[in-house]
Design a protein around this nucleic acid. Structure first.
Length: 283
DNA sequence: AAGGACGCCAACCGCCCTTTC
DNA sequence: AGAAAGGGCGGTTGGCGTCCT
């Protein structure tokens, strides 16, 4: 299918925005709100592509943006969310008020990646770097029949972007996808949505798990079909041959993910999340 | 002091998904 | 039902500032 360009490239400015352009964009959005980005540049008197205006507004000019360095808490939350969601920067950004997907993506690539590598953790899989070969060998030898839970998240039906969780229990003997990760002691619930089992799934132990509400009221079939579905196979713990203490070090000071992602309604930490040290754990 | 190397980040590109007609 | 339009997203790039030699 052919696609018309989003703008007349010949008559658009590119590169850094000037103060005057910023001001025009701010003034226009203040007066008219965010609307049709394609027609905005012309209406606002800007020689810019609509997409460029949108990016500039979202990533830089929006009044609710939190500028400045990321806090330790934000660091940890990003790492945890990335371990669950992968490179879903916009979803991750949705859980960090005032931060943009672009900002988090840049921060991940420039800081957190390096931090994880320095701790001996693969930033993609969130596994110890030296574990890949061990896992690979183990999988290629005898792949046991494994009980997995597919967890899909429904962000569609929530104005505040809190995801609903949809679980599907499966028994499979498939191999694991290196790019997907999750693990732990997830509460079982009835399958409410059949998610096609991927041919390959990841077995990643982060020593964390997600608290899953047992009620189905978050989910409607119509909504769930159009939802973001993140397959997150929950695998049994790695063998003792695969140390995970490095991961644990990085995420030692944990917070309740039920609350952070919004699995528990009302922004409350569930009682199970709090451990004896007073920190919150994933449950 | 100069200039090369490196890191950071704003912005762009192209693809994908959803909505509209 | 399918094509087109529009918006959004993730990956990548290029410019600028800082550090190092």
């Amino acid at each position: 299918m052919g696609r018309s360009p989003c703008c007349e490239k010949a008559h658009t400015n590119k590169g850094a925005w000037t103060k005057e352009e910023d001001q025009r964009l701010i003034n226009y959005i203040r007066a008219n709100g965010e609307g049709c980005w394609r027609s905005l540049p012309k209406a606002a008197g800007l020689q810019r592509c609509g997409k460029s205006c949108r990016l500039r507004w979202i990533n830089y000019l929006r009044p609710d943006l939190k500028r400045g360095n990321f806090t330790e808490e934000e660091d940890e939350l990003i790492i945890k969310l990335h371990s669950l969601l992968g490179n879903k920067w916009s979803v991750i950004a949705g859980r960090l008020p005032g931060r943009t997907d672009n900002e988090i993506k840049n921060y991940w690539n420039t800081h957190i990646k390096r931090k994880l590598i320095s701790h001996g953790i693969d930033p993609q899989t969130h596994r110890p770097l030296n574990a890949a070969s061990v896992i690979s060998a183990a999988n290629s030898a005898t792949i046991p029949t494994t009980t997995t839970k597919n967890i899909s998240m429904d962000f569609k039906n929530n104005v505040d972007q809190k995801p609903n969780i949809i679980i599907n229990n499966n028994v499979t003997s498939s191999s694991y996808d290196e790019t997907k990760c999750n693990s732990g002691t997830t509460e079982e619930t009835k399958p409410v949505e059949i998610i096609p089992q991927k041919t390959s799934q990841s077995m990643i132990n982060l020593e964390l798990s997600i608290g899953l509400p047992l009620h189905n009221d978050h989910i409607s079939s119509a909504e769930s079909t159009a939802s973001y579905n993140f397959l997150a196979p929950v695998a049994p713990p790695l063998t003792a041959a695969v140390p995970i203490t490095a991961t644990a070090e990085v995420v030692a000071k944990t917070v309740c993910l039920c609350w952070q992602i919004g699995f528990q309604g009302g922004g409350q930490c569930c009682a199970k999340c709090k451990n004896t040290t007073g920190f919150y754990r994933f449950c």
